[in-house]
Design a protein around this nucleic acid. Structure first.
Lengths: 140, 140
DNA sequence: TTGATATTGAGACACAGTATCAATATCAAG
DNA sequence: CTTGATATTGATACTGTGTCTCAATATCAA
């Protein structure tokens, strides 16, 4: 299912209502290639003719995350960072502490070990975040 | 070296000064068994006869972290969480999303895979954080 | 004892995010 | 189409976590 469908079914399931604000935000988020945060999205939404209030941007981001349309991917200096992509597979992040650039990676072996550990501790995993800090190749 | 020694040598190295506030905070932190945050420490410090201002608590926490006396271990709802223990080895966390309990674990295989990935990407790792969210055994 | 300077406390400030609430938009039922 | 119930919005006040400022004070070497 595409993200518009996901939003529609989430809205129906919860007895919510379709609004132009949500439609506008979804269209803009779809076009963002990488990561984004609430403030950045807010200014992008209000850059053009469209206009959505700060409160609604935050509310809608939360709604989209609950609907599975976007994912909260990490915290950057106390700021939540999201990314579009219901079809995207899970991945982890490397953050360069010098230039702040973000690199994605995924390692099935690490995932496997995590599952192993959870089994051992009888812990039912619902999600995880792995973040490696360091210095990237071009900053060395 | 114990934490008092670490503080002393860090202070000397940086040309800083010994103060009663720092001593008081170190004594209290030493007695905290698990994790703590700035606000919790602040109220603990000011509960008794001792008194340290909010600003100084935050400043001193930062100083202790730089001196290696405490470690920033994770972020919990936008709040930084620390733990005492210069001798403690690195470990990762499992957080129960129901009861909020925190479990520690460490897995050398995961660490190894992380190093492998960093080598592959020519990324010089300086630190990492792995956090598994889920439901703990007693909350199932 | 003195002088340089690191430190402190109090409070203002910064920032991300949430709560409040009256006005408005949506939508199902008639 | 109109109506009524209610979900949503925008404006703005507020919260929580942490930082900055700056005058007063404590520390320490000379």
């Amino acid at each position: 299912m595409d993200s518009s469908g996901m939003l529609k079914s989430y809205i129906e399931k919860k007895g919510l209502k379709k609004t132009s604000e949500r439609a506008v935000m979804l269209e803009i988020i779809k076009k963002i290639p990488g990561h984004f945060d609430a403030e950045g999205l807010l200014s992008q939404v209000n850059r053009n003719n469209t206009k959505v209030s700060r409160a609604s941007v935050y509310r809608t981001i939360k709604l989209f995350a609950e609907a599975g349309i976007i994912k909260e991917s990490l915290l950057r200096g106390g700021r939540k960072v999201y990314e579009y992509g219901p079809e995207k597979t899970h991945h982890d992040h490397m953050i360069c502490v010098k230039c702040g650039k973000l690199f994605e990676f995924s390692d099935p072996m690490i995932e496997k070990h995590q599952e192993e550990i959870c089994r051992k501790h009888r812990f039912q995993m619902t999600g995880h975040k792995l973040e490696i800090q360091g210095i990237c190749n071009s900053c060395k």
